[in-house]
Amino acid sequence: MWTVFCEPWAGRVTKQTPVNLPSVSVEIDIAHVARLARLDLSEEDLDTYGRQCQELLEHVARIQAIDTTGISSTSHPLPLTNRFREDEVTTESGLGRQDVLDQAPDTEGPYFRVPPALEED
């Protein structure tokens, strides 16, 4: 049996109504985005994804209304600066060339093989 607890803390937290930022309308050319993302999608899928992405973007894009003048972007959560090492070949990762080539769908000698990148005249 579940009991409702009348503890001293319950009710002490101020309930706040969420800040309602104005909604933003977003235009998205989903076919163009799919091409950029190298996704060969059917017309029907483009339609569905286009609608869902627009809905989600209109929700999240409301943060555009927040004043961020003079605020810098977060790049790394900790105050770390760039780390450098000598530009030397190491075997630390333990990966040999053949180990890597063995994973590829198609190879030729020491190369990965792909269909033509440029169309022939």
Binding site: V33, L57, T74
Partner: peptide, 25 residues
Amino acid sequence: LLGTFALSAGYHEAFYGQAQKVRTL
């Protein structure tokens, strides 16, 4: 798709850039 859009030319600053600033806030 969402991410590609948020990083694409013309939208990068308004979407990804603003989100990284809100992250600082």
